[in-house]
Simulated assay, not measured.
Amino acid sequence: MKVISLLALAGSAAAFAPTAQQGRASTSVAAFEKEVGVTAPLGLWDPLKLIQDGNQEKFDALRERELKHGRVSMLAVVGYLTTAAGIRFPGAENIPDGLASWQALLDTRDGQNVLMQMLAFFAVAEIVNRDADWLDNKAEFVGDYRNGALDFGWDKLDEATKLRKRTIELNQGRAAMMGIWGLVTHEVMGNSILPGGYLPGH
């Protein structure tokens, strides 16, 4: 836990480095300054120097992972807060919220069935949510898994609106990653950050 705290502290400190030090990035990295998600106040934030070589394929792979983790984290925060509010699926009324739910699901045959269904869903989502190379279409951007089948009005939007919406999704995903991390960390520490001092799993 101390190592994680030190890494987080080091990463935070890099955000406040003087501009002269940050300006030493190679010219190949400067191309990433125009990528979606490079927003104030951090701009292009790469404290671990993962993209210093200017490799576009590596950047795209990292962006795809960032999007996936952000999307999963948005669902996780909603699920965590929904169960903390007392809402349950029918038949799961006795399952506790928070981290205690995992053990409760493992302890019963019905709970194990739920976990198996979750695992099957994760596998199918992982397979389906990727660019289908065998189809005669090309993804518009990294993380575009519509595969020519879904639109919901996206293709009617102008480029500026698309860029804004993609930036919003990235930033909301980043906030959700920090949000679920914070919720779980506070639960483990035994400190409630929810209204009324409620502490899930306790």
Rank of each mutant, 00 (worst) to 15 (best):
S101F: 11
A125Q: 06
E57I: 13
T108D: 03
V78R: 03
L75F: 09
L119M: 08
L106S: 15
D97H: 11
R88M: 08
A31I: 10
L119N: 09
L42K: 12
A132H: 14
K34Q: 15
P96M: 14
D131C: 08
Q112E: 10
P96K: 09
F32M: 14
E35I: 02
T83S: 09
N55I: 05
D107Y: 03
I127E: 05
W45R: 11
G148T: 02
G37K: 03
A100H: 06
P90A: 15
D60C: 08
L62P: 04
A132V: 04
W45E: 10
R130P: 02
V114W: 04
L81A: 02
L119C: 03
G79Q: 02
E57P: 02
G79H: 05
E64K: 15
R88V: 03
N55H: 05
G43K: 09
F122D: 07
A104Y: 06
K138N: 09
F121E: 03
V36I: 13
G37L: 05
P90D: 11
S73G: 01
V36A: 11
F32I: 07
G70A: 00
N55C: 06
L105C: 05
G153L: 04
Q112R: 15
A104P: 03
V142M: 12
M118H: 01
Y80L: 00
M118V: 08
K138S: 12
D131M: 10
F121N: 02
L135D: 07
E57C: 04
P90K: 11
A84K: 01
W45T: 06
D133K: 15
G86F: 07
Q117M: 14
S101H: 13
P47Q: 06
G91E: 09
F152Q: 03
L135P: 08
L119E: 07
V128H: 00
K49E: 15
L50R: 13
D155Y: 12
M118T: 07
L62Y: 06
A30R: 14
Q103R: 15
L67P: 03
Q112N: 10
N113K: 13
N113S: 11
E66D: 11
G70I: 03
T83G: 00
A85R: 06
L67N: 06
E93P: 04
R65F: 08
T83R: 05
V78F: 05
W134Y: 14
G148Y: 03
G70N: 03
F32E: 07
M74F: 03
L106M: 12
Q56P: 12
Y145P: 02
G148K: 04
K49N: 14
A149M: 14
P47V: 12
K58R: 12
S101E: 12
K34R: 12
G153W: 08
H69M: 15
E93V: 06
F141T: 04
D144S: 00
V78H: 04
A120F: 01
F152C: 00
H69T: 05
R130W: 04
F89V: 07
T82H: 08
G143V: 02
E64P: 02
P41N: 05
L48W: 13
T39G: 00
G70S: 03
L99I: 13
D53H: 13
T83D: 01
I51A: 04
G98V: 09
N94R: 04
L75R: 09
A123F: 00
S101T: 09
D131Y: 14
D60S: 09
S28M: 10
E64Q: 11
D46N: 10
G143S: 14
T39C: 06
W102C: 07
R88Y: 08
G111T: 01
